[in-house]
């Protein structure tokens, strides 16, 4: 459906909007992007300060909570032999692969369940039951079936990513404004063209928020996968350091998970902003 003129008009709309936002007279301090970033970092900075205070004053003993400096030293230590980079990279790779597979399947199955009464009747009960299974319950079975390799971990993460996308997409498609669908039909859209012309664009904001949830869930399931059977990755670092009493590395692993999770979430947040701007 997108023609050259469509793209041109979209581009000119964007430039027009840019012009109007530039001319907006005054915005409060909190609306500025820089202020938002600084504000968001305020609490972490305070936490860091508090951490430093309770550890250096001896309020909390070092074997329970090491100082920020020793966690930093552990990071430098692990980075110098390349392990930190390797663990982070392998975990990110697992998350991204599992997320891609799971959310693609979630999109397809969500579309089937959301659009066809038959699909809904046949699938939704079973999928609802499978969704209720806690993530850790899958681990032994997946290891038995897929061995202790990448496959079992990626499958588990894909299961984790599948459900948020499936749920949001199927629910959103069921509630697409029937007036718009009818208008689409009146103007000759049916089947696939109706799906791509009206139904999918109508649920795009829900799809993106489903993806965002799925990504968060992927990180959750990653740790579940790596806690039990792995020799690499942030989850492995966590459990291995626990076994060896390296609290500094445990905290490092948690901080890395938080950072990577936030980073990937911020990327998808950018996508969301772009999509919503186009949509509204």
């Amino acid at each position: 459906m997108t023609t050259v003129s469509d793209q041109q008009t979209a581009a000119s709309t964007r430039s027009q909007r840019a012009a109007t936002t530039a001319s907006t007279p005054r915005r409060s301090l909190l609306d500025r992007r820089g202020a938002a970033v600084v504000g968001g970092l305020l609490l972490p900075a305070l936490l860091l300060l508090g951490w430093q205070l309770v550890t250096t004053t001896g309020l909390v003993l070092a074997y329970k909570l090491p100082t920020p400096a020793s966690v930093w030293a552990a990071a430098v230590d692990l980075a110098s032999n390349g392990d930190l980079y390797l663990y982070t990279a392998i975990s990110t790779q697992r998350v991204l692969l599992g997320f891609a597979i799971g959310s693609a399947l979630g999109l397809v199955v969500g579309a089937v369940v959301g659009l066809s009464r038959l699909g809904d009747v046949l699938l939704s009960t079973t999928l609802g039951a499978i969704r209720a299974v806690p993530s850790l319950a899958w681990v032994p079975l997946l290891i038995l079936w897929l061995k202790i390799g990448e496959e079992s971990k990626i499958t588990l993460i894909a299961i984790g990513a599948f459900f948020p996308v499936y749920t949001t997409v199927s629910a959103a498609l069921r509630h697409v404004d029937p007036h718009l669908v009818e208008a689409g039909r009146v103007y000759g859209l049916r089947g696939v063209s109706l799906l791509t012309g009206v139904q999918l664009p109508a649920v795009l904001p829900s799809v993106v928020s489903g993806l965002r949830l799925a990504l968060a869930q992927s990180w959750l399931f990653l740790v579940a996968a790596e806690l039990i059977a792995s020799s690499m990755g942030l989850g492995f670092l966590l459990v291995d350091s626990g076994n060896n009493g390296r609290v500094d590395r445990m905290i490092l692993a948690i901080v890395m998970l938080a950072l990577m999770g936030k980073l990937t979430d911020a990327l998808i947040g950018l996508l969301e902003r772009r999509v919503l701007r186009r949509w509204t």
Partner: peptide, 13 residues
């Protein structure tokens, strides 16, 4: 019943 994600021209199209 205009499609909200399309411009006026795209809706007419």
């Amino acid at each position: 019943r205009l499609l909200p994600w399309r411009t006026v021209a795209q809706n007419v199209a």
